[in-house]
Nucleic acid binder design. Structure first.
Lengths: 168, 168
DNA sequence: GCCCATTTGTTCGTATGTATA
DNA sequence: TTATACATACGAACAAATGGG
């Protein structure tokens, strides 16, 4: 199925899992097969599986719950939408600026009606722009337990098995 | 120096390196100490060092060059700026929309001079907004070889050591 | 040009802790 | 309690790139 051996195995595996998520074979909310199962399926060590899963998690596509499974969080399209939306937003603001520039240039010799129409058009464009940005902001700010994710209740020191104490 | 043992060692180490980058002890463009050196310094295995470096690389703070070293790419502040700028941008667009709303509401009974002043003010706000978004877009779109980074010239198959062939 | 040491990157194996069922 | 699963951490090996002798 995969014959591009020019790339590391964990990247190929991550790409394959991404494709499965995008195609719907791994639906959002469902569980990814366990590390051991993936290790047997793909014929690689658990290290490669972990590396692939880590890459997907870094991209925000999956989230792991210890003791349970790794769950699909979102599709690659939804993640790519953020960048695409940002690009669209840039284009919209640019057009908006050009329109406003035209208004400022021709405002001396235009009638009130035309001015009114232009302002209404500007208002429509800005409304669409605003809606996109709100969606973009909410999607980036809300559902992301990324980074630290402070222990909400009790710090509950997890473990100190071998060499957890690190210093200079 | 670090006594919070409630978190994994590689996360503590990543946080410490982040702080060093932020404080300037690890300047942008300089090289991070090698894996072996960091392993001795912090008293952890190379696995922990690799995990910490991987986290910093996933955040876009450092980039590694095989055979040479891992170099500091940007500061955490500059990375956080993207989100802050997005937030500011959201606020600015919101204000802009409110101003435009007021213009549309009061355009019937205002003089040309006042309308002109408001349009000029809108134009100034939109200009600032546009500049911020352009900076944000260029910073996200340009210097990022993230994701796949297709081989630009020759695919140049790198290696196939043990079990690179993976299948279903 | 060739050899060698260093460094990053990838991959293997294994062990342990914690969480869930 | 037992079993499964994720997460962390240890050690070791090899490939590729870099740079010095």
């Amino acid at each position: 199925m995969i014959e591009d051996v020019g790339r590391p195995a964990y990247q190929q595996m991550a790409a394959d899992l991404r494709a499965q998520i995008a195609s719907g074979k791994l639906a959002v909310g469902s569980a990814v097969p366990s590390t051991a199962q993936l290790s047997k399926q793909y014929g690689v060590s658990v290290t490669v599986v972990r590396a692939a899963i880590n890459q997907l998690r870094a991209d925000g596509l999956v989230v792991g719950q210890p003791g349970k499974a790794v769950y699909v969080r979102a599709t690659p399209e939804a993640m790519a939408n953020e960048r695409v939306q940002l690009q669209d937003l840039a284009g919209q603001v640019k057009e908006l600026r050009a329109s406003l520039n035209d208004v400022a240039e021709r405002e001396e010799s235009t009638s009130i009606d035309q001015l009114r129409a232009e302002v209404a058009d500007l208002r429509r464009q800005l409304g669409s722009c605003h809606a996109q940005l709100m969606d973009l902001y909410s999607r980036m700010g809300q559902p992301y337990p990324h980074e630290d994710a402070e222990r909400e209740t009790a710090p509950k020191r997890r473990r100190a098995p071998t060499g957890t104490e690190i210093g200079t």
